[in-house]
Simulated scan of single mutants.
Amino acid sequence: MSNKDKLIVIIDDENDILTMLEKYFTREGNYRVKTFNNPLTAISSLPQDTDLVLLDIMMPQMNGLDALPKLLEKNPDVKVLMMTAYSTLDKVLNAHRKGATNYIMKPFSSLSALGKKIEDMLKA
């Protein structure tokens, strides 16, 4: 399966992050990308063929830790990469307990490092 067959869903309340990641993953990674700036909308509209979700933890409508089990309920096989600028060991452990595959700190050290992490997650 090539990258163009893979769907990445990005959920973040910051539109600049959504735009930047969508451009990067469609151009550099050649993935299909769908973005949501509201986790409630993402939960109700999550495409069934989603391969990976990039999920921000801190959002005003619903935090990512609360959205995570609801997304996994809709698609138990999806891989979830949590994103946060406010990481604590407790949040990381809580995300793993709730089913997150991995996490990454914002701001990203580099988009290519993020792309490599996603590529590795999709191969596993």
Rank of each mutant, 00 (worst) to 15 (best):
K4Q: 11
D5C: 07
K6R: 15
I8A: 01
V9I: 10
D12I: 11
E14M: 12
N15W: 06
D16S: 14
D16Q: 13
L18G: 07
T19Q: 14
T19D: 14
M20P: 05
L21Y: 08
L21R: 01
G29W: 05
N30M: 15
Y31M: 08
K34V: 12
K34I: 12
F36S: 04
N38C: 11
P39C: 08
T41K: 15
A42I: 07
P47M: 10
D49H: 05
D51H: 14
L52I: 10
V53D: 13
M58C: 07
M59I: 07
M59A: 07
M59Y: 10
P60W: 02
P60R: 03
P60T: 04
Q61E: 15
Q61N: 13
L68H: 04
L72C: 05
N75Y: 01
P76I: 04
V78M: 07
K79D: 15
L81G: 00
L81Q: 00
M82P: 04
Y86D: 10
Y86H: 12
Y86C: 05
T88Q: 03
T88A: 10
L89Q: 12
D90L: 07
V92M: 11
L93R: 13
N94V: 02
A95P: 01
A95L: 06
H96S: 09
Y103C: 01
Y103W: 08
I104Y: 13
F108Q: 11
S110A: 06
G115H: 14
G115P: 04
K117F: 00
K117I: 01
E119T: 09
E119A: 11
M121S: 12
K123R: 13
